[in-house]
Amino acid sequence: MIKKYFYDENIYRSEYHVRQAIWKQERKAFGKEPKENKAEFWEKLGVAYTEEPDPEPPAQVQAEREIFLLKAQLRETDYVVIKIAEGAANTEEYSEVITQRES
C-alpha cells in the first residue's frame, strides 16, 4: 500500500515526514496515526491522506520471482533424488515428489 500525505502544498510519503512538516510549520505535536479512520485523523490536522494499492511489478520481476520459487522447491526436494540414487529409497515411496519435480 502506498501512503500519501498532502500538506502545505507538498506530498509526503511517510507519517514521519509529514509530522516533521507540521511541527516545523505549526509547532503542533499529536498522537499516533490510528489503524482505522486515518483520513479523518489527518483531515483534522489539515492533511489530505490517501492510500493507493502497490503497482504490479514488471513482467521481468514476476518471472524472476517465479524462477526463484521453483528453484527453491527443487532444492527442498533434492534429498529424494539422492536417496533414490544411493538405493536408500525407491521411486514408489516418493512418486508424488517426483511428479512435482517433473512439472
Rank of each mutant, 00 (worst) to 15 (best):
72 A>W: 05
69 L>W: 13
30 F>C: 06
77 T>K: 15
21 A>Q: 12
95 S>G: 00
9 E>L: 08
20 Q>F: 01
12 Y>P: 03
59 A>M: 10
16 Y>H: 09
88 A>T: 00
21 A>S: 11
88 A>E: 13
82 I>G: 00
87 G>Q: 08
16 Y>M: 03
6 F>H: 14
14 S>N: 10
36 E>N: 05
39 A>E: 15
58 P>R: 08
4 K>N: 11
92 E>P: 00
98 I>K: 09
28 K>Q: 14
86 E>S: 02
47 V>K: 13
32 K>S: 13
70 L>G: 02
56 E>W: 01
94 Y>W: 15
57 P>G: 11
1 M>Q: 06
92 E>Y: 09
87 G>V: 05
21 A>E: 10
8 D>Y: 13
55 P>I: 06
23 W>F: 12
24 K>N: 12
53 P>Y: 01
70 L>D: 04
81 V>Q: 10
66 E>D: 14
66 E>G: 03
25 Q>Y: 04
64 E>Q: 15
24 K>C: 01
75 R>L: 09
66 E>C: 04
65 R>F: 02
54 D>F: 00
76 E>D: 15
50 T>W: 05
58 P>W: 06
18 V>K: 12
25 Q>L: 05
83 K>Q: 11
8 D>E: 12
10 N>S: 08
44 K>H: 12
11 I>A: 07
102 E>F: 07
85 A>M: 08
